[in-house]
Structures are given as C-alpha cells and as structure tokens.
Amino acid sequence: MHNFEFVKPSSVADAVSALAGEGAQALGGGQTLLPTMKQRLAAPEKLVSLSGLAEMTGVSSAGGVMTIGGATTHASVAADAGAYPGLAGLAAHIGDPAVRNRGTIGGSLANNDPSACYPAAALGSGATIVTNTREIAADDFFQGLFSTALDEGEIITAVKFPIPQASNYQKFVQPASRFALVGVFVARYADGVRVAVTGASEEGVHRWSAAEAALSANFSAAALDGLSVAADGMIADLHGTAAYRAHLVKVMTGRAVAAAS
C-alpha cells in the first residue's frame, strides 16, 4: 500500500476542510477502502477519518422517519434500528461480525458496489441521502456501478429513511464473497410499494417498477405470478448466468413479500 497522511478531524466542518485538497479521500470503516488500497487500486495522498465523529453517528426516529448518521456502523444499525426491522435485519447480515463492527452506512452508499446491501435499502425506502452540502433523493443518488451523485470531497453525514408499514430484505448469498448474488428489498408504504434490486444488474441497484405496481395493487407473492424479468443487462459471471440472476430477482422478491413484517 502506498503511504498517505492520516488525519482525524473532530468535527464534520474540519473533515470537510481536510477533504478540500487534491488527493484527499474520506475513510469510513475502511472495510472496502483498505482492501482496495492494498491492491493499489486506490492511492489517496491523505485519508480523512470519519470514525468517531459523534455528529455522524447513531440511530434516531421521529415522525415516521429514521435518521442514521453516515458514520454509523452496520453493527449499530443492526442493534438500534428496531423501529425499522427490515433495515436492521439487512444490516445484521452484511459480511461478518468484524466487518459489521467497522463498516459504515455512509461508506457503503458512497461506494455503491453493485452487490452491496445498503443501496437496496436506501432505494427501496425512497431514502434521502444527507451530505455536508445538500439532500439527495435515493432515486437520484445511485448512478450505476460504483458511481453516485456525490461530488469530490462531499460526505454523507446522515441518511433519512421513511419507516414503512412492512418491509423485508432477501439476500441470495454469493457463496465466496457473502455479498448479494441477488438481493431484493421490498417496502410497503401507505402510498405504494417499492422494490429495489441489488447484485443483479450491470447498471447496479435499480427499482423493479412492474413488481411495484403489482404489489401496490395486491401485496402478496401471488401478485408477481404474471411477471417476468428479462435477462438482458443482468450480470453474468462464474457464480451465475444472466438468466439465473433474472430468475432469482423474481424468486427473492416473492420471498421478501412473504416475509415482510
């Protein structure tokens, strides 16, 4: 790994100014960035640690909205997001316990790995990504593989999730990485159902609008019977063909609906 300057600011404002220079990058839990730096696929000149920023840590709920600080670990969300069981359950199954003790929601959303879990929850909840400068709707935030609406040096300070009436995340685990081979997040709101799919598409996380319409009319797995998912644009690799992933999208959606609570 190339060397870099390590900076540990004590406020979001200090973190933002430390990130202003060329070659500076935010460090969340490091559970993606460290392996990437070891492979020299990333070589920042300066890392600005966001861990320990109290302003960006913790889970709270008010008025039907759950707000999670951008530096909150997966383990804390699993433990403290009980008011939104679908989300707590998703966080509890990311990676393994040691990964969950370091990895953060902000890091996961900023990274936007096409097989990551949190992007499905954010998109499937119609969440709002709060940064140091603005608020971004999840529908506008994810822009394809590893790409988001974030500007250079912009940090995710919090994520606001409208709490649904019922929700569930079903992850078909890729047996080697334990990421999602296909993962589907289903959330039922008073004004309709949202369905977000991760792991499947070459475009990254996306909504399955035909399923949303069918489930908004009839929230049962049977409502999906007449639907099919095209294999076009699905990821194909040694773990599964495009047709297999397309098939899994429907199966996992049905399971999520059946399990939603």
């Binding site: 540990k8 460090l27 490091g30 460290l34 392996p35 640690s49 316990p97 003790n101």
Partner: peptide
C-alpha cells in the same frame, strides 16, 4: 471484534 489487517494503527 475487528480484523486487525483491515484497520490502520492510527485508528
């Protein structure tokens, strides 16, 4: 529990 290979000493 954390993976010591995936955390900087400075952290």
């Amino acid at each position: 529990a954390v993976k010591a290979c995936t955390m900087f000493a400075a952290e």
